Simulated assay, not measured.
Amino acid sequence: MQCDHFDAGRCRSCTLMGVPYAQQLADKERRVADVLAPVAPDLLWVDPARSPASHYRNKAKLVVGGTAGHPTLGILDHRGRGIDLRDCGLYEPGLAATFGPLHDLVARLGLEPYDVPARRGELKYLLVTHSPGGEQLVRFVLRSQRHLAAIRAALPTLLHALPSVRVVTANLHPEHKAVLEGDTEIALTPQTSLPMTVGDVTLQLGPRSFFQTNTTVAAALYRQALDWVDAAAPTVVWDLYCGVGGFALHAAAPGRTVVGVETSSDAVAAARRALAEGPDAGHVEFVVGDATTTTVEPAPDLVVVNPPRRGIGPDLAAWLDASPARHVIYSSCNVATLARDLAAMPSLRALTGRVFDMFPQTPHTEVMVLLERTATPS
């Protein structure tokens, strides 16, 4: 992949830019294997799940810079000035097609970009998610409600220019903090969730819902997990950190009980909506709770964990190590915390692993490991 912004030094986010994709992937596999070797010396590696080297991102987190009437959509430089990255080669074509009309709307409304050094302005970010069905969810991250009425009034114009947009919201983020969003979300369209069809499952993404950035590789991740689940033939599956239910809904099958646990009530509501709108898939339920402490009935034969970068931590690792679960599937975006957690579960042996290249052009990667119990819990 070639990028003029990288070559000119305007954006260095893609630290592997210029490295051939095959080499990027081989280096990632080698690093992951080296980190896990001390705690999983017999791990059998499946061929990695490859990604397109470019045009793979299904979501954009666009910092709004520039001035009212002349905004930039992209990132900020070290002085807080906007760098326009609407032509970035990482975005799916259908996602990139939304940037021009959104830019024109922001300019026409005169929405004042938030000036980070001066701590002044209104519009902080535009967050856009693109579905496999060619639809979008658009979020305006604002400092206050000052321009909310203007955005509402301009919605018909936006939806005429972008008829594929299904969900529009405003997020209020009044504080000067290095976080992406605030606590208040205001729906501006009747529809509040974006259908995301992955394989045979249609998930429902709300404005705050997490979904993998790379739809192609996310589909491979879910397929691999389902293959491992089906081979293990569990009666009861727990999906901890279930989010909007991706692993749980893929694992659902007649005669199998699946329980998803997630701390976000919005995500659980989205998972329940996807369950209600999907085909009958056996007994599936979603529970709001802390994945590290919440226990439900019945006890699991197999547990899927998909934690944030910090990993599952010592308490959940100890519980899993002593649990009745015969298998654990651990999906991780941080191989260092994965290695730490595997070391804390000596009764479970890592059998098989696979790298999923969610983020070409960067060193980040996802890895999933299948664990099998080798010792009976005391």
Score class of each variant (00 low, 15 high):
2 Q>K: 10
153 A>T: 13
111 L>E: 03
180 L>A: 14
334 N>W: 08
338 L>E: 05
207 P>D: 13
285 E>S: 15
222 Y>K: 08
165 V>D: 08
185 E>K: 07
104 D>Y: 05
134 G>Q: 08
63 V>P: 02
297 E>M: 13
351 L>K: 14
85 L>M: 12
211 F>Y: 13
223 R>P: 02
312 I>M: 15
114 Y>K: 02
213 T>Q: 08
256 R>M: 06
28 K>R: 11
129 T>P: 00
149 A>L: 10
172 L>Q: 04
3 C>T: 05
83 I>S: 06
124 K>Q: 13
91 Y>G: 02
59 K>R: 15
172 L>I: 15
80 G>F: 06
206 G>M: 07
217 V>H: 03
114 Y>G: 02
356 F>Q: 11
126 L>T: 01
182 G>E: 06
51 S>W: 00
143 R>S: 12
340 R>A: 11
268 V>I: 14
9 G>V: 05
140 F>I: 04
195 P>F: 09
260 G>D: 01
152 R>K: 14
295 T>E: 15
324 P>M: 10
321 D>I: 09
76 L>Y: 15
236 V>N: 04
218 A>F: 13
208 R>G: 13
200 D>T: 09
207 P>K: 04
32 V>A: 12
252 A>G: 08
226 L>V: 13
145 Q>Y: 11
25 L>D: 07
121 G>F: 04
97 A>V: 07
141 V>K: 08
313 G>K: 03
242 C>Y: 01
105 L>H: 05
59 K>I: 07
61 K>D: 10
148 L>S: 09
35 V>R: 09
53 A>L: 07
333 C>K: 08
176 H>A: 15
30 R>N: 12
363 P>R: 01
280 D>Q: 14
319 W>R: 15
134 G>D: 08
269 A>Q: 11
128 V>R: 02
356 F>L: 15
249 L>H: 00
242 C>L: 06
215 T>G: 09
257 T>D: 01
365 T>W: 08
191 Q>R: 12
159 L>K: 07
315 D>K: 15
120 R>G: 09
268 V>D: 07
13 S>V: 10
115 D>K: 01
188 L>V: 01
70 H>A: 15
272 R>I: 12
298 P>A: 06
367 V>L: 04
309 R>I: 07
292 T>W: 04
15 T>W: 08
152 R>E: 14
241 Y>T: 00
345 M>C: 07
19 V>L: 13
111 L>N: 04
46 V>A: 13
148 L>F: 07
66 G>W: 02
277 E>P: 03
177 K>I: 12
241 Y>D: 01
297 E>A: 15
182 G>D: 06
24 Q>A: 07
29 E>P: 11
87 D>N: 12
116 V>D: 14
2 Q>N: 11
162 L>R: 11
185 E>T: 15
